[in-house]
């Protein structure tokens, strides 16, 4: 069942200026529900741009993007914010964990913007997901004192706390050694087996072995 459908997607930064950059040049693709997909390519190939558009962080310059049958490329920003909150979980390489806060405070972040979750239920829900990822003992610790692997688990817990359908991971193992990378990828694989659609953007070819499918992007186009 197709969950994400992209048709002739273009993204041009600094459009109509001398500094114009054509980051995506007519990408068309579809991703099934429950798929674990690796998007690979060299730096500057446009893979993170594609992930930003899939994650509703950015608008395409041209083309259509359907998420679960809904045309999201033309939705207003507040609607995109709702989609980001309810349907998408983000795991980033070294960005996104607030180091001056405790692990549990990081995990509850998406719940702050989920109107269906009460303030009093937030901590309980965060603990539940942290227990599942076996990091509940880290809950009260400041994230600046956590190891890279622990931080990334906290990031995954945060991505999962609103029970989204898709998890988007941008170089999730970029700052980790091989053993920790395997742990994190196994964890993402586990979530995928539970039915989550996982999309990983990476330039590390070893990650593709964890995924059902690999998509190569070169110079803004699918190779």
């Amino acid at each position: 069942m197709t969950y994400i459908q992209i048709h002739d997607l273009h993204k041009i930064y600094n459009h109509n200026t001398p500094e114009q950059i054509h980051a995506l040049k007519g990408i068309s693709m579809s991703i099934d529900k429950g798929e674990m997909l690796a998007i690979m390519g060299p730096s500057g190939s446009g893979k993170s741009t594609l992930l930003n558009i899939i994650g509703c962080l950015d608008y395409p310059t041209d083309g259509k993007y359907f998420l679960d049958g809904q045309l999201v490329s033309s939705l207003k920003q507040n609607m995109l914010a709702k989609i980001r909150n309810k349907q998408v979980g983000f795991v980033l390489q070294d960005f996104g964990i607030l180091n001056d806060r405790r692990a549990i405070e990081n995990v509850i972040t998406p719940l702050l913007f989920n109107k269906s979750v009460k303030w009093s239920d937030m901590e309980r829900r965060a603990y539940k997901i942290m227990e599942k990822l076996e990091i509940s003992k880290l809950a009260k610790r400041l994230t600046r004192n956590l190891s890279g692997g622990e931080k990334q688990r906290v990031a995954i817990a945060r991505a999962m706390v609103n029970e989204p359908e898709i998890i988007l991971a941008d170089e999730p193992t970029g700052a980790l050694d091989t053993r920790l990378s395997d742990e994190i990828l196994s964890l993402l694989q586990k979530l995928n087996r539970e039915g989550k659609t996982v999309i990983i953007v990476t330039h590390n070819p070893n990650i593709s072995k964890y995924c059902n499918r690999t998509l190569n992007i070169v110079d803004g186009m699918i190779a």
Binding site: N78, A81, N85, L98, P110, L112, F113, N114
Partner: peptide, 16 residues
């Protein structure tokens, strides 16, 4: 800024 980006990424909208 990092905090703001994290908030926006996780569902805060611009009016908020």
């Amino acid at each position: 800024r990092q905090e703001i980006v994290v908030y926006l990424m996780h569902g805060m909208d611009w009016p908020h």
